[in-house]
């Protein structure tokens, strides 16, 4: 269990972390959300003592994190970090060894992960010769190689194509199911919704909201998606009382319903505008949870 307890960090007049406290249970995929400059990276770096904190403590399994404990953690920084001119295989073995693995274990783990990620034939190549996506895969391997108890990944999905996101997402879920505590940050809120068990949203270094994805999605105002043949604007909905148009995409109108709104009234209004081809109640998306939390 990872525990942030009252973390505070100031950079001059800027407050990066403001008495931030939350807990991440082991075996979970935990998404760290927040606008740019909210303090996500600072909080993640605090776990590895890459940044000093003014007050507070980070605990792992109830004990303040030590350098020995950190050796069992895996880390993927926001700005990727590998030796550009070093061979991929050698580099991964080196990082594995730094995390306490024996040479032979590091060698075999490197082989196994590179094979899984389709990079087995590139082990003798230099990192700089790889594409962005493959460099990302190697960077993830560096964090996973030693089978960490805690995996902290800063924007691991940034710059990846949908296949890459699915591939890395599957690995993160698999790690969590194997007992690892997976914490990552991402701006692709709706894409990662299926990956995460829980999320935390912070802003200006302060906790805004945290909870399980299902709980957050099912809470708040109801969402209704309506599609009417030939309608591209959703203007018909503006006349329905206590209903707000959240977004209109390709003729699909997403509505936020007030507490006392009867869906039959909405359906009636829709029918008056044309032939209704879609009328579905939906959960809150993570992007909506995010936006509404920060409002």
């Amino acid at each position: 269990m990872l525990e942030f307890d009252g973390l505070t960090r100031r950079f001059g007049a800027v407050v990066a972390l403001d008495n931030l406290s939350f807990v991440v249970e082991a075996g979970q995929v935990f998404d760290f959300l927040g606008p740019n400059g909210a303090g996500k990276t600072t909080a993640m770096r605090a776990v590895f003592a890459l940044i000093g904190i003014d007050s507070g403590v980070v605990r792992w399994n109830g004990v303040p994190v030590t350098s020995d404990a950190r050796r069992k953690f895996g880390y993927m920084p926001e700005e990727r970090g590998l030796y550009p001119g070093m061979r991929i295989g050698d580099q991964l073995i080196y990082i594995g060894r730094l995390h306490g693995m024996s040479t032979i274990d590091a060698h075999h783990a490197t082989e196994a992960w590179l094979t899984r990620l389709g990079l087995a034939d590139r082990a003798r190549d230099k990192v700089e010769s790889l594409s962005h996506g493959n460099q990302q895969r190697v960077q993830l391997t560096a964090a996973l190689l030693h089978s960490p108890e805690l995996l902290i990944l800063d924007e691991p999905l940034a710059g990846l194509d949908p296949t890459g996101i699915d591939e890395i997402g599957a690995i993160l879920v698999e790690q969590a199911r194997a007992g690892c505590c997976v914490v990552f940050s991402s701006h692709q809120l709706d894409q990662v919704e299926d990956l995460c068990d829980s999320v935390i949203i912070i802003d200006h270094g302060r906790l805004v909201v945290t909870g399980r994805v299902d709980d957050l999605a099912n809470s708040g105002a109801r969402r209704l998606v309506v599609r009417i043949e030939g309608d591209r604007t959703g203007d018909w909905a503006h006349g329905v009382s206590n209903v707000t148009v959240s977004e209109v995409t390709g003729g699909e109108v997403r509505l936020i319903l007030g507490e006392d709104v009867d869906t039959d009234d909405v359906l009636e209004a829709a029918r008056r505008a044309g032939r209704v081809t879609e009328f579905v109640m939906q959960r809150r998306r993570m992007s909506e949870v995010f936006r509404e939390a920060l409002q």
Binding site: R45, F48, A49, L50, S67, R70, R71, F73, Y75, P77, E79, R80, G81, L82, Y83, P84, I95, L98, H99, A142
Partner: peptide
Amino acid sequence: EEKSSRVIEVLLAAVR
């Protein structure tokens, strides 16, 4: 180069 390539963060996550 270790600083500019940011590999330093990966290393310092494991080594003092």
